[in-house]
């Protein structure tokens, strides 16, 4: 079982990503959340005789490597000013919190070994989607899907016996590919539009 304060911390960090202003601060919050999950994964692997190398890979890749990729994207895509197209932080916070509460209220129990962790996992997935939907900078949208993936990782940790190590490693490979491609997109979008504010990507409509 994962301690409730830890679950609250994970959800609180996700909520922080909805409101935090600077992209670098966002990456720091994501790294903190991923490191916390990585530590839980290593603890589970040690205490429940799981795969320690897979858990360490989760810790290092999610908590260190992927945030460093995003830091590199920020370095390559310096913004002359704040992204002006974003809604107010308070409105974003209220919207994200409301959607997360509604999702947890409507969804039946996930049937995981640790139900509180199941609720927190669902909250992280919903908040990740909210971050991607409500934030405009490319980096925050990439952070959104990493937060949602962190939710799935938490759900996996709450399954009795955990997910098979080969699955964890396969997911990591996909995650590295997705973040790598997202980083390349961030650089190209900035190069082409002079900003990584995705509100400029609104030409394709019928």
């Amino acid at each position: 079982m994962i301690a409730e304060p830890v679950l609250w911390a994970l959800v609180g960090l996700a909520l922080g990503l909805v409101v935090v202003r600077r992209r670098s601060a966002g990456v720091a919050v994501l790294a903190a959340q991923s490191l916390l999950l990585g530590v839980i994964a290593v603890d589970h692997a040690v205490t429940e005789h799981g795969s320690v190398p897979a858990a360490v890979a989760i810790l290092v890749i999610r908590g260190v490597v992927l945030p460093l990729v995003l830091v590199q994207v920020i370095r390559l895509t310096r913004e002359p000013r704040r992204v002006a197209s974003e809604r107010s932080a308070l409105l974003r916070f209220v919207l994200a919190l409301a959607v997360a509460l509604v999702a947890i209220g409507l969804a039946p129990p996930l049937g995981l070994h640790d139900e509180a962790a199941g609720d927190a996992a669902l909250a992280l997935v919903v908040l990740g989607i909210a971050v991607a939907a409500l934030r405009r900078p490319v980096v925050f949208q990439a952070i959104g899907f990493l937060v949602a993936e962190n939710g799935v990782l938490l759900a996996g940790l709450a399954v009795s016996g955990g997910l098979p190590a080969i699955v964890e490693l396969g997911l990591l490979v996909d995650l590295v590919l997705a973040v790598g491609v997202a980083g390349a997109f961030g650089a190209r979008i900035h190069e082409r539009f002079g900003t990584s504010d995705t509100s400029v990507l609104r030409s394709l409509r019928d």
Partner: peptide, 26 residues
């Protein structure tokens, strides 16, 4: 336009597949 289409495709399908993965874990 191609960058816009590619970015939309990447974000929307990745988020969608994350929801599918949660279902698989359940």
């Amino acid at each position: 336009l191609a960058l816009e289409a590619g970015w939309k495709y990447l974000v929307l399908t990745t988020l969608g597949l994350t929801v599918a993965l949660l279902g698989i874990v359940v």
